[in-house]
Design a protein around this nucleic acid. Structure first.
Length: 469
DNA sequence: ATGTCC
């Protein structure tokens, strides 16, 4: 007896082109086929999609068919016959899905250069671990949904033995002053200069997002995001002039929360309308950098990046205050972002989606897992990688496979063996679900020098029930 | 990764 309800998402999934066809189809189907199930309605739409011409005379479906015919005529900017060659780092352990996605990306007419990092795995649009340089074009899904997702490591002045001796103090700080889970906000919004940015007043999209963004600044979200206490070993020359030795540190991984997600969704939709591509590359729709839409996205993306940075700083401010620490040094970097960079004398838009910037001398953080060490690295400025490196160990198992095959018992055993305390989290983020970070590091020796390590000791992640709820 | 807006 439930009335038919269709979503744009479902229609895109069966291959509807971005644009008016989606809303026309939803309206028509919900009126004319209101007692059909969603599956039955989608089956009808699939048939119309395959051969719209055959439905031009059908009373109920002619409007949808007509619009699809028009879309077909406008459609499909062709991909290059000859792809741009690109280097694959760690080719032995990269899944085929990620390779296929990268192969499509380097056939975009705007593609100039690319590279695939050793932690690569399949994503949406550009693979996670994909680097793509384009000419005068920015690809919202080349940056990803979590714009400005990044790492931030604070090195503190507290004695390292306090992590054991005063463990409850560090656990309390995480419990009281970090917040995890989709949609979560602080009751009292943080103050930050980024919230005063003029774009929040000028762009209607951002105007509606300001309140939520204020509430979510200083929260961590879900999935693989974390805040953790651990031991930092400095072994080489960082760009923050820290003497070699062992320090107490705080490491966080999170991004721009709802703000970045909404910006990404809005502009990828706009890009797919303006830039229809063959199906295998449809998610890689771009915006011209010298167009109004392209400029808007670029500004909004940069704002989301600044917001993500401010959010980490707020998390660290809370942790430092709660433990009475002093900040000695900080290492941080985006790993979902696009930059204007000059490579081979040409100004390019370099998209790094799950890749760490590694220009010569630039420091960054590559996390391992909740038990495996992360690395503080210094870029070598390798040209073939477009000055990039991996952004982590990379998943070895999908979230689903991990929850099916790893038990709580096994996870707890791993944690015990490594002396790690976990708050929240679950088997989907267990160390066994990730590749061996040492193999990933070995595959990128030419890209970065290791100048330090971070060994997690007390880790907080989202409860694994928080995603379903 | 996000969060129930086509």
């Amino acid at each position: 007896m439930t009335k038919l309800k269709l979503t744009g998402k479902a229609l895109r999934n069966i291959g509807f082109p971005e644009g008016p066809a989606i809303s026309i189809a939803i309206t028509a189907m919900e009126q004319r086929f209101k007692h059909h199930t969603e599956a039955a309605a989608l089956d009808i739409l699939k048939q119309v999609l395959t051969d719209p011409m055959a439905y031009l005379a059908d009373d109920a479906l002619r409007k949808i068919a007509g619009r699809l015919m028009e879309a077909k005529e406008e459609e499909d900017i062709p991909l290059k016959e000859i792809p741009v060659p690109y280097e694959i780092f760690g080719a032995g352990f990269i899944e085929t899905g990620a390779l296929q996605q990268m192969n499509s990306a380097v056939r975009l007419p705007v593609a100039v250069a690319g590279a695939l990092m050793p932690d690569a795995h399949q994503g949406y649009g550009l693979p996670i671990g994909g680097v793509l340089a384009t000419n005068n074009a920015v690809i919202p899904y080349g940056v990803g949904v979590d714009i400005g997702c990044r790492m931030c490591l604070s090195i503190l002045d507290l004695p390292v033995d306090q992590l054991d001796k005063k463990a409850s103090r560090f656990i309390d700080a995480l419990m009281k002053h970090t917040k995890f889970g989709a949609g979560e906000e602080w009751d009292e919004p943080a103050e930050a200069a980024v919230l005063e940015h003029h774009l929040f007043r000028e762009l209607p999209l951002l105007r509606r997002l300001l309140d939520k963004a204020a509430g979510q600044l200083g929260t961590s979200g879900g999935g693989n995001h974390f805040v953790e206490w651990g031991l930092v070993q400095i072994t080489g020359a960082t760009d923050c002039h820290l003497a070699p030795g062992t320090y107490l540190g705080l490491l966080s991984h999170s991004g721009s929360r709802g703000l970045g997600a909404q910006i990404a969704t809005y502009y990828t939709r706009l890009a797919r309308e303006l830039c229809p591509l063959p199906r295998e590359a449809a998610h890689l729709a771009w915006l011209e950098m010298d167009s109004e839409a392209g400029q808007e996205y670029w500004q909004a993306m940069n704002l989301a990046g600044d917001y993500a940075s401010a959010s980490h700083h707020e998390i660290h401010r809370r942790m430092i205050k709660a433990t009475g620490a002093q900040l000695l040094a900080r290492v941080e970097n985006h790993h979902n972002f696009a930059w204007k960079e000059v490579h081979n004398g040409q100004e390019l838009i370099v998209h790094r989606k799950g890749a760490t910037p590694a220009a010569k001398g630039v420091c960054g953080v590559i996390p391992g897992s909740m038990t495996a060490p992360g690395y503080i690295v210094r870029g070598r400025g390798d040209a073939a990688s477009l000055h990039s490196a991996a952004h982590g160990a990379g998943r070895a198992m999908s979230r689903f496979t991990a929850t099916q095959s790893i038990t709580r018992y096994e996870l707890n055993k791993q944690l015990r063996e490594h002396g790690v305390t976990l708050i929240g989290g679950g088997p989907d983020e267990a160390p066994m679900a990730y590749k061996n970070i040492n193999e990933v590091m070995a595959a990128q020796q030419g890209l970065v020098d290791v100048v330090g390590r971070f060994q997690p000791k007390i880790v907080r992640m989202a409860d694994d029930g928080s995603k379903e709820d």
